[in-house]
Simulated assay, not measured.
Amino acid sequence: MTDDLHALTGAYALDAIDDAAERRRFETHLAGCETCATELREFRATAARLGMAVAEPPPPRLRARVLADIGNVRQLPPESPRRAAVRPLRPRRWRRAAAAGLAAAACLVTAASVGVAVHERQRVERSEAAYRDVASVLSAPDARSAAGRAAGGGTVTIVASASRGRVVVASSGLRPLPASKAYQLWLIDAGGARSAGLLPDDRSGPVVAGRWRPSDKVGVTVEPAGGSARPTTAPLVLLSPA
């Protein structure tokens, strides 16, 4: 139990105060402390945003698998007609069977939860690596940028660094394409065009494209899904960092 009730705001927001008396003391204090009340609202809002950021629904087949396995667990021991009339049911055996069914269901839920956790961890690690690459370019002392309107609507912005040898590309408002098409990035110099990959389908975040050289311009074309070895359409936009 702590004497500094102000320090309990974060724990209270996460429902992590186990001591009932300490919880009541804090709630009494909270009723008259506007600073703690404000911090509590902020902590709860932050916790909700973090939870939504990593939330992932369980696999749709999980519920059906759990219910199917529970249905196959015998909850009562078999009784012969002669013995059923003279011998009462054995609660201990029933409890063991029910516990076995619950344990099987718990194992299924645990296995699915571990799978979801591993998948989520891998996704977070990929995102962290991608944002480290982006931050490396944006924080470079020689970073230069350019932006332009794309034919057909939308804008494309680039930030390039010669010392990092990379270019970050971000887009906004590009028209949606059919599933058979994709936006492809190109690094273009006097020697021709080199593919720098595809823009993500949602086009919602920056990507680090290819190996950039100061002589390169960045172009965006519409190509068949999966990309092309060489541009097959005219660039929607062609940018060179200033």
Rank of each mutant, 00 (worst) to 15 (best):
D3F: 05
L5Q: 05
T9S: 04
G10Q: 11
D18G: 15
R23W: 07
R23V: 08
R25N: 02
T28K: 12
E34D: 15
E39F: 10
E39H: 14
E42Q: 15
F43K: 14
A47F: 09
R49W: 09
R49I: 13
G51N: 09
V54E: 05
P58Q: 02
P60C: 10
A64N: 01
G71P: 03
V73M: 02
V73F: 00
P78C: 00
L89N: 06
L89R: 11
R93Q: 14
A97T: 00
A97W: 01
A99R: 10
A103C: 02
A103S: 11
A105T: 06
A106M: 08
A112W: 01
G115E: 08
R123E: 07
V134N: 06
S139L: 08
S139Q: 06
A140R: 03
S145N: 06
R149T: 08
V156P: 00
T157K: 00
R164P: 00
G165M: 05
A170T: 06
R175S: 15
S180L: 06
K181D: 13
Y183W: 07
L185D: 02
I188G: 00
D189K: 06
A193E: 11
R194I: 13
D202E: 14
V208P: 02
S215M: 04
V218P: 00
V218M: 03
V218Y: 03
A225Y: 01
G226T: 05
G226Y: 07
G227S: 06
S228R: 07
R230D: 07
A234K: 12
P241E: 01
